[in-house]
Simulated scan of single mutants.
Amino acid sequence: MEWRDEGIVLAARPHGETSVILELFTREHGRHLGIVHGGTSRRKAPMLQPGNQLDAAWRARLESHMGGWSVELKRSRAAAVLSDALRLSALTSVCALCSFVLPERETMGAFQARTETLCDAIVDGEGWLTDYVGWEVELLAIAGFRLDLSACAVSGGANDLAFVSPRTGRAVSRSGAGDWAARLLPLPEMLVGGAPSIAGVVAALELTGFFLKQKVAPSFGDRPVPPARERLLAALRAEV
């Protein structure tokens, strides 16, 4: 078995004395693992940092085997944001969440392309905060929990939406909430067309984070949401 693809480094874990298990989010083969022999060497280790773009060839005797990678660097995103704590946190959060949520070896061409675009935006430093929020909302949907913020779950109307049901992820209007308002989650304005701001991004990520913890994590055996994601939120709160 052999194929060639391009993808984003999600993680590289030590394997034996000098090798690593490299996890890539590839364009045509989804999230895929393989061994990189000599991956801890001075030449290869810098290439295998989360967020970097690699050209990779995967080989194995059988498709069910883990196989091995031969890799070449296409774009070093990690080094480009190393001096910016906020953007570095965002890049590592993207990679950690992909590793946490995405199924292995399932092609996700559109979402992979969106993830590459987001990683490039983080490196370029333009408009990435809004893109990141939209990306997390889509990630929730991929994980099996789609937010429905288009209309009130009670009345069906699309006006004065102000809350989100913590049980269903559906929007609720002020009038529809009634006496239940205190039990609902606030709906960030930027998720329903409001102007983006750092405070709005924090509010939006607090909402998506709630569902990552309460709905997504339990479906994966109660594994905790990756700490990288929490570090990003803490860094954003410090900017408010």
Rank of each mutant, 00 (worst) to 15 (best):
A204Y: 01
G67Y: 04
L129H: 10
D84K: 02
S93A: 15
G39M: 12
A60L: 00
G67F: 09
G221R: 13
M108V: 02
V164R: 07
D179F: 07
L102W: 03
F163T: 04
L118D: 03
W58D: 12
L102E: 11
F163N: 04
T168P: 11
P14S: 12
Q214M: 14
V154W: 10
G109S: 05
V164Y: 03
R27A: 12
V123W: 08
G200H: 09
A113F: 02
A217T: 13
S155L: 11
C95G: 11
A143P: 00
E63I: 13
G221M: 12
K74R: 13
Y132F: 15
A171D: 07
A203I: 01
T26K: 01
D55V: 06
E116Y: 07
R114H: 12
K215T: 04
R4P: 04
R42N: 10
V240A: 11
G176S: 01
A199V: 06
A56Y: 04
V202A: 07
L82F: 07
E230R: 03
V192Q: 13
R43K: 12
L129V: 05
P227D: 15
S219Q: 10
S76K: 08
R231N: 00
L191K: 07
G38R: 11
G194E: 13
A181P: 04
P227I: 13
K215E: 08
K74N: 06
A96C: 02
G156T: 03
A177E: 01
E6Q: 06
W128N: 06
P218N: 07
L91P: 08
V36Y: 13
L88I: 01
V192F: 11
H37E: 14
A238L: 15
L129P: 09
L191S: 09
A96G: 08
L33P: 06
A153D: 15
A199L: 04
D131T: 03
E230P: 00
A151Y: 10
L88P: 07
A228I: 00
S173Y: 07
G30C: 12
A203E: 12
G221P: 08
C98N: 14
F163C: 07
M1C: 09
A217G: 12
R61W: 14
T115Y: 04
R174I: 10
L185Q: 11
R42H: 14
L82W: 09
A153C: 04
D222W: 08
L161G: 05
R146S: 14
P103R: 00
S165W: 03
Q214R: 10
D131R: 10
E28H: 09
D120G: 02
H15R: 13
A80G: 02
F145W: 05
G200Q: 06
A113D: 11
T117H: 12
L187M: 12
V172C: 08
G34Y: 14
G34K: 09
A234L: 14
G200A: 02
L22I: 10
R229I: 05
M66W: 02
P196N: 09
A235P: 00
P196E: 08
S219E: 05
Q214V: 06
S64R: 07
R146Y: 06
G38I: 09
R183L: 14
D84H: 08
K74W: 04
E106N: 10
R229M: 15
R183F: 05
L191H: 05
A151W: 02
L187W: 03
V192D: 11
L10E: 13
G209E: 10
P226E: 03
A113H: 01
E17D: 15
L233F: 05
L102P: 02
L191N: 00
S19M: 08
A113V: 01
A171P: 03
